[in-house]
């Protein structure tokens, strides 16, 4: 189909979920878009592992949340927030690779 995810969402963001995880939220414009992406099964561990150059075991969960028409992805931080060498204490700027997803 080749639809761009950025045209289907209101929100794509990243943030700490505690100091040891980063969580990504994709919140869709309407339930139909959400349903389409959810049912297409494109947001997979393999896709996220590929986008972030991580192994699938570093992905904690991918959860569909119907009440918010949202898909939530959580990954393990390689360094806890604020540890020496860490780059994004709030984890708020790790979302960019998700912007290019196509359905």
């Amino acid at each position: 189909m080749g639809r761009k995810i950025i045209e289907m969402v209101d929100v794509i963001r990243s943030k700490n979920a505690g100091p040891y995880e980063i969580t990504f939220d994709l919140i869709f414009k309407d339930f139909k878009s959400y349903q389409e992406v959810r049912d297409a099964g494109v947001i997979t561990r393999e896709l996220i592992a590929d986008l972030y150059r991580i192994t699938p075991d570093q992905i904690v969960s991918i959860i569909n949340f119907d009440p918010a028409r949202a898909i939530k992805i959580t990954i393990i931080r390689s360094l806890s927030a604020g540890a020496v060498g860490e780059r994004d204490v709030y984890g708020a700027q790790q979302h960019a690779p998700l912007l290019g997803i196509e359905i």
Binding site: V11, N16, A17, T23, D25, P67, A68, A70, K72
Partner: peptide
């Protein structure tokens, strides 16, 4: 969207938010 989005905020699992003494089940 703004309120539901916030239920997800900073948590790894939006369906079950764990805290002292139990879990908020959404």
């Amino acid at each position: 969207t703004s309120v539901a989005a916030h239920s997800l905020y900073e948590k790894s699992n939006p369906l079950r938010l764990s805290g002292p003494g139990g879990t908020i089940d959404l």
